[in-house]
């Protein structure tokens, strides 16, 4: 991996970020020549408040001045005041990052582990009943809307069989500390976590399976077998490490969705994270909140994409020279 490759990728990432900023700015302030009018359509906001907001956002200035002002404010994490809470948007968002990272992070790790193992097993026993059942069940989970899966699990395991709480992140009535609090968190995390794990699993299984099948056709495996290595060793030492490459990239890219990956599922389980904040902002509609969320979601994805590119080049020396 040489410096030119790294520079190229870093510059690419920054140009994407700048593009997001431009979209964010123009969509909300210029495309609709009366941005507040179009966003507040149908909701009852007093006229004087709209006028107040117009001057707050400097909408009487020329476009380029507004854009420069917008860039400066964004760099200082100043996203304006939320229409709903009247608090600075960033203060609102800060507290919602951790719940989302916890939920999506746990699910992302679990789905990667289970999906990859499942995909490898399916590939190694290609054409068997095991392969068939793994492939078809991942296809089914892959084909359903994640929030619908959440609704089904909620119905089955919180209502019909009341084993788990119906929503939220903690039980407000309990004042447990230490281990009790952890247990409380885990119980609330279980159903949304299971939903997301099942929903993400399919992609990993499909990529892992096709990657291992690709590798299995390679000459070096034939050589390994010809040397007299046992099947287990061929798999563990030669096939799996090479087949993991695309999976690692996929995982790195998917971690970019650690903030935005559960928008609808968080809503189903009333999970107090960024996804739920997005739904609330849409219903508002809360323009400054939506803008800030879009920017943060995009920044996370751009960052992890860059990481994936660099990681791939580091793991596979054929890339990035």
């Amino acid at each position: 991996m040489n410096a030119a490759y790294v520079t190229k990728k870093v510059v690419g990432a920054f140009s994407t970020l700048l593009f997001v900023l431009v979209i964010n700015f123009f969509l909300f302030r210029v495309v609709a020549d009366d941005p507040f009018g179009s966003l507040l359509r149908g909701s009852r906001v007093p006229t004087d408040k709209v006028e107040q907001l117009r001057s707050d956002f400097g909408l009487d200035e020329p476009t380029w001045k507004q854009f420069v002002l917008y860039l400066r404010q964004t760099a200082q994490l100043d996203f304006g005041l939320s229409f709903q809470t009247r608090q600075p948007v960033w203060d609102d968002i800060q507290g919602k990052i951790w719940p989302t990272v916890l939920l999506v992070g746990v699910s992302a790790i679990l789905s990667a582990l289970i999906g990859v193992v499942g995909g490898f097993i399916a590939a190694w026993r290609r054409g068997s009943a095991t392969d068939y059942s793994i492939t078809s069940s991942t296809m089914v989970f892959y084909s359903m809307p994640d929030f619908w899966l959440g609704m089904l699990l909620l119905y089955a395991f919180a209502i019909v069989l009341p084993w788990f709480p119906v929503g939220g992140m903690t039980d407000l009535r309990s004042n447990a500390t230490g281990l009790g609090a952890v247990w409380d968190h885990a119980r609330h995390l279980f159903l949304p976590g299971l939903t997301l794990t099942l929903a993400y699993l399919g992609e990993y299984a499909i990529v892992a399976r096709s990657s291992l099948l690709d590798v299995m056709g390679e000459d070096y495996l034939t050589v390994a077998r010809a040397k007299g290595l046992r099947d287990v060793n061929v798999r563990r030492r030669h096939a799996v490490p090479n087949a993991l490459l695309p999976v690692v990239t996929l995982a790195a890219i998917n971690f970019g969705f650690v903030l935005s990956g559960a928008i609808a599922v968080e809503t189903v389980f009333s999970w107090p994270g960024l996804g739920r904040a997005t739904t609330d902002a849409i219903r508002g509609p809360d323009l400054p909140m939506l803008q800030a969320l879009f920017l943060i979601f995009s920044a996370a994805v751009i960052f992890f994409n860059l990481l994936a590119d660099l990681l791939y080049a580091w793991l596979d020396p054929r890339v990035g020279t």
């Binding site: 690419g12 140009s15 994407t16 593009f19 997001v20 979209i23 964010n24 969509l27 909300f28 495309v31 609709a32 941005p35 179009s38 966003l39 359509r41 970019g256 969705f257 935005s260 928008i263 997005t278 849409i282 509609p285 939506l290 803008q291 969320l293 879009f294 979601f297 995009s298 994805v301 751009i302 994409n305």
Partner: peptide
């Protein structure tokens, strides 16, 4: 370059933002 930009930007948040503005 433009394709790359659109490819990296998370699809659902972008769709949400566009749909909110358009109605």
């Amino acid at each position: 370059r433009v394709t790359e930009w659109f490819l990296v930007i998370p699809f659902l948040p972008l769709a949400i933002v566009l749909a909110s503005v358009l109605g």
